[in-house]
Simulated assay, not measured.
Amino acid sequence: MNLKNVRIKRKYEACIIMLAVLLFMGSCGSTKEDPADWQDLFNGKNLEGWTPKIYHHELGDNYANTFRVKDGTIEVNYDEYEQFNERYGHLFYKQPFSSFHLKFRYKFTQQWMEDAPVYTYRNSGVMFHSQDPKTILKEQDWPISVEYQMLADAEDGNPRPTGNMCSPGTEVIFEGEMDPRHCIESTSPTIPWNEWVEADLIVYGDSLVIHKVNGKTVLQYTKPQIGGEVANGFDPEMKKDGQLLNSGYIGLQAEGQGVIFKNIKIKDLSNKE
């Protein structure tokens, strides 16, 4: 099959997936949502059900109280650090999910570790379809996963959309083709760093993924799968390039920038595929 035919085939497959999901969503548009469908992932009191994994540290070591609970929120806070030292962290929920609708709110703080890479400034994210945190090695910097990336205004005059996609050790199909970029920008506006943002992540297994910001769809892509680069120090058995990601773990990110998460809820969509 020549390159032109491959591209046509990919675009056709993407259109079929999109059409199927849109038809489903349209058929359910008149159905009143039941609050009981939503599960709270965070109890507002402690980190029960969540486990940290920080680069250079063993699973479960919440170094310098990086992840903490304050006033009913989960904070990423660095006030007990002397140096960041590449301690990229993730706080994982206890169970994997396949098809789901995740909702959460976030806001950045003024805190940023100046020895962290410059790209981490007003930058965080939520990982999904991640490898089991028990398989992440002590000296592995990023989990093999897909990321709902959160950015905020850096006050430098440059646009910084939020709700982007980043792909440590993974790849996705965007606009009908495998996209080689590590991060794909959304269509969201640039949002001030100190504003609460409502984020939605809608995932249909290994088919369609939808990112929303403040209720508006800002990015869509399909077929999340293992591949690409960026993640380092992983067990080679965990990185089988080309393997579609149908499920995985959810993790809140900490990469040198202070951030607050709250109202973290999930709805299982397994019966909606």
Score class of each variant (00 low, 15 high):
Glu273His: 13
Asn77Gln: 11
Lys53Ala: 06
Tyr55Glu: 08
Ile54Glu: 06
Asp153Trp: 05
Val21Asn: 04
His182Pro: 01
Lys240Pro: 07
Ser124Phe: 02
Lys212Gly: 01
Pro96Leu: 06
Asn5Trp: 03
Gly248Pro: 11
Gln39Leu: 11
Asn62Ile: 04
Gln83Thr: 13
Phe261His: 05
Gly169Tyr: 03
Thr217Trp: 00
Val146Pro: 00
Gly26Thr: 12
Lys70Trp: 02
Cys15Leu: 14
Ser27Pro: 00
Asn158His: 12
Lys262Ala: 09
Gly44Ile: 07
Asn2Cys: 14
Gln39Ala: 07
Arg122Cys: 02
Thr73Cys: 15
Glu13Gly: 08
Asn194His: 07
Arg87Tyr: 00
Asn65Trp: 05
Tyr55Met: 10
Tyr81Met: 08
Met150Tyr: 02
Glu195Ala: 05
Tyr119Glu: 13
Ser124Lys: 04
Thr187Met: 03
Ala36Asn: 12
Trp193His: 14
Ser145Thr: 12
Asn271Glu: 15
Arg87Cys: 05
Asn158Leu: 14
Gly256Val: 02
Trp142Phe: 14
Gln39Gly: 00
Ile173Tyr: 11
Leu23Pro: 02
Asn271Ala: 14
Ala116Asp: 10
Gly163His: 07
Ser27Thr: 04
Val172Asn: 07
Glu155Met: 12
Arg181Met: 03
Lys265Gln: 15
Gly163Phe: 07
Ala231Gln: 12
Gln243Val: 06
Val118Arg: 13
Gln95Trp: 03
